[in-house]
Each structure stands twice: as structure tokens, then as C-alpha cells.
Amino acid sequence: MTSELPEYYYRIRENGAAVFRVDTENRQRRIEMEQIAVINMNKGEIKPHGDRDLSQMDQKEIKRWMAERKALLAMRDIDDIHRAVDYMNTTTQWAQSKASPEQLEEVTDSLLLAMHDLRTVLVRKKADRLTKG
């Protein structure tokens, strides 16, 4: 662990984060965290906590964090999709070589509906891209 703590701490929430200023410059040398803002990533909003006014440095740092977080979440989304392709492949192998008739009966309708829905969306989106391109 490094000896210097960051100036800000972000407590991740469902659609954003709570932002805290980290302070170790006190008499007891304890770590104190004071909430300064709440971030809504969906709306791109930064709301100061309580009656606080955020400095330009606070706002700049929070916006930098929001940009990094947005990029991280986008990277995770595409990684999840690549994993889904892997799961589809392993599911195919399982259905072909290991699944019992009872197991197949349990999942076939759900899988077929989900795959039909996915295929419909993918075909429509592909057609849209081809007609616009």
C-alpha cells in the first residue's frame, strides 16, 4: 500500500458515486472522509453535498473520474458480450454432448426465445447499418 492516499474517494453506487475528500492532515493522523458531492452517471450530474460549493479543482477532478469510469464501464460491457459468446458456445457443446433429455426440456424453450429475440435485434441493427452505410 502506498504511503500517500488520494485526495478524493469515490464510493460506487448503482448509477454513480458519492464523492468524499480524504483528509489525513489532522492531529490524530486519522483518515477522515468528508462527503462533498453525489454523481449521477446516467444524467452526467454532479450535485454538491449539503450546502457545499465545489471548487473548480473539485469539479475538474470529479469530471476526470467520471470520464474514466464511463470508459471502464464501456469496456466491461463489451467484455460481458464476449463472455456471452463464450457461454453460448459452451452451452452448445453441453447441449450436444452432455445434457440429459430432462435438462434439455428444462431450458430449451427459454434458450430458443432468448436466441430468437437476440437474432431479431442483431439482424435489424445490421440491416440499419448496411442501409445507412
Rank of each mutant, 00 (worst) to 15 (best):
D23N: 14
K47V: 10
G44T: 04
A84Y: 04
V19P: 00
M115T: 09
N15E: 13
L118T: 08
R27D: 12
D86L: 11
Q59H: 09
V19G: 02
S3V: 10
Q35H: 03
I31D: 04
E25D: 10
N89K: 14
D109M: 06
T24K: 07
G133D: 12
A114M: 08
D128I: 13
V38L: 09
D128C: 03
R52M: 05
N26F: 01
E7A: 10
T90Y: 15
A18C: 11
V107L: 07
I39R: 03
E4R: 06
Y8N: 00
E45I: 03
L5A: 02
Y87E: 15
I62F: 00
D117H: 15
Q103I: 05
E34G: 14
R83N: 11
E105W: 06
N42V: 08
F20W: 02
H82R: 15
P48F: 01
E106T: 13
V38C: 07
R52L: 14
M66Y: 01
G44M: 03
G16D: 01
R27Y: 13
P6M: 01
E45W: 06
R64C: 00
S100H: 02
M66N: 01
K98L: 13
A37T: 07
L130D: 14
E25Y: 08
A95Y: 13
I46R: 00
W65F: 03
R29S: 06
M57K: 11
D58H: 02
I62V: 03
A37M: 06
S3K: 12
M1C: 05
T91N: 11
R129Q: 13
L118A: 07
K60A: 01
S100C: 01
